[in-house]
C-alpha cells in the first residue's frame, strides 16, 4: 500500500508542475488571446469554490445553497482591506494582499461557524433551504450597508491577483486543493464521510456529529472566502448582485458534474465549465439551459439501471476503482 501512495504523490506532483509549465508557456509565449488570458484566474477561483463546496456537499453529504454568500464575505473583507491598507500604501502591496487573503478566509470561516452551529439541528431539505436563506440574507445585508457601498458596490480594488500574478494564484489554488485532499485522507476526513454514509452508526462509534458538521462548514467557508478574495482582486469591482443564488447553483453544477465526493472531478469540471461558456460565447442563455440539462441528466443517470449495469461490467468497475 505504501508504494501506491508514493506513486500517487509523484503523479500529483507531476500534474501540478506540468499544468504550471503549460500556463507559463502559454502566457510568456503570447499564445493566448486576451479573452483566454482573462479566464486563467476565474478557472482557479472556480476550482477552489468547487472543491470547498464538495467538502460539505460531496463528503459531508449536506446540500448547501449559500456558498456564494461565503465567497462574497471573503471578497468584500479582502477588498476593504486592500482598499484601506494596500491602496493607501499603509502596507506594501504583498503584505496587504496576504492580510486580505487571510482575513477574507477567516471572516468567511467565522460566518461558516455562526451559520453552521444553528443549522446543525436541521438536515437534508431544511438545511438546503436555510443555507439558501442565509445566502440571500448576506446579500441583502451587504446591499444595505454603507461600508460595502450598498448596491453600487466597491470599485477600483487593486488587481493583486489578476493574470500577471498568476503564480501566486496558482500556488493558492494548489494549496487549497491539497489541503482539502489531505483533510479527506485523515481521521477528520473519515469522520466527516462516515456521517454522510450513516450518521447513526457514526455516532455509535463515538464520532461527534455536530462537531464535525461545524468543522466541515467552517473549513468549506474558509476556502470559499479565500476564493472570493482572489475573485475581488482579479476583477477589481464587486457588486452584491454577483453573489446570488445563481452563483451558488453554478458552483453546485461543477461539483455535481465532477462527481460528488471526487476532488479530481471537481477540478476537471471547474476547468471545463469555465472555458466552455467562453467557447460558446454570445450564447449565455444556452449556457443556463446546458447547466440545467447537466444537473438533471447526471442525477437520473447516477440513479438509473444503466449505471448499475455499467458498474457490474468488469472493465468499468476497474475504472471506477481507480477513481476512488
Amino acid at each position: 500500500m505504501k508504494k501506491t501512495s508514493n506513486r500517487q504523490t509523484w503523479y500529483y506532483a507531476a500534474v501540478i508542475v506540468i499544468s504550471y509549465a503549460v500556463v507559463t508557456i502559454l502566457l510568456k509565449g503570447n499564445l493566448l488571446n486576451r479573452q483566454y488570458t482573462s479566464l486563467l484566474v476565474p478557472i482557479a477561483v472556480n476550482i477552489m469554490l468547487a472543491v470547498s463546496l464538495n467538502l460539505v456537499t460531496g463528503f459531508l453529504g449536506e446540500l448547501t445553497l449559500g456558498h456564494a454568500g461565503f465567497m462574497s464575505i471573503g471578497a468584500y473583507t479582502g477588498a476593504l482591506i486592500s482598499l484601506n491598507l494596500g491602496k493607501t500604501e499603509v502596507l506594501p502591496a504583498p503584505a496587504a494582499f496576504a492580510l486580505a487573503l487571510l482575513c477574507g478566509g477567516l471572516m468567511a470561516a467565522l460566518f461558516g461557524f455562526l451559520i453552521g452551529v444553528p443549522v446543525l439541528r436541521l438536515r437534508g431539505d431544511y438545511l438546503a433551504i436555510v443555507t439558501l436563506a442565509f445566502g440571500e440574507i448576506i446579500k441583502s445585508v451587504i446591499n444595505s450597508m454603507e461600508i460595502t457601498n450598498g448596491a453600487r458596490g466597491l470599485s477600483k480594488i487593486p488587481l493583486y491577483s489578476n493574470y500577471t500574478n498568476y503564480t501566486v494564484v496558482f500556488i493558492i489554488m494548489v494549496l487549497t486543493v491539497l489541503a482539502i485532499t489531505n483533510l479527506m485522507n485523515s481521521r477528520d476526513g473519515r469522520a466527516i464521510m462516515s456521517i454522510r454514509d450513516n450518521d447513526i452508526a457514526a455516532e455509535s462509534i463515538g464520532i461527534k456529529i455536530s462537531h464535525f458538521k461545524v468543522k466541515a462548514f467552517v473549513f468549506s467557508a474558509f476556502f470559499a472566502g479565500v476564493a472570493g478574495v482572489l475573485y475581488a482582486h482579479n476583477v477589481g469591482l464587486l457588486k452584491p448582485g454577483t453573489f446570488d443564488y445563481n452563483k451558488s447553483i453554478e458552483i453546485l453544477v461543477i461539483v455535481v458534474l465532477g462527481g460528488m465526493g471526487s476532488i479530481r472531478g471537481s477540478v476537471i469540471a471547474a476547468v471545463i465549465l469555465t472555458v466552455l461558456p467562453e467557447l460558446l460565447r454570445g450564447t449565455d442563455n444556452l449556457r443556463m439551459l446546458l447547466y440545467a440539462i447537466v444537473l438533471i441528466a447526471m442525477m437520473i443517470f447516477n440513479n438509473s439501471k444503466i449505471k448499475e449495469g455499467l458498474m457490474m461490467n468488469r472493465t468499468f468497475r476497474k475504472l471506477g476503482k481507480k477513481e476512488a
Binding site: 481521521r187 464521510m193 450513516n198 452508526a201 462509534i205 463515538g206 464520532i207
Partner: peptide, 24 residues
Amino acid sequence: GRTFQNIRLFGKMTVLDNVKTALH
C-alpha cells in the same frame, strides 16, 4: 459498542476505512 439490526455500514468507504473511522 454496538451493531444494528439493519446493517449500518459506511457504504462508500473501504472496509479498512470503516474500521479506521472507529479508531478515531
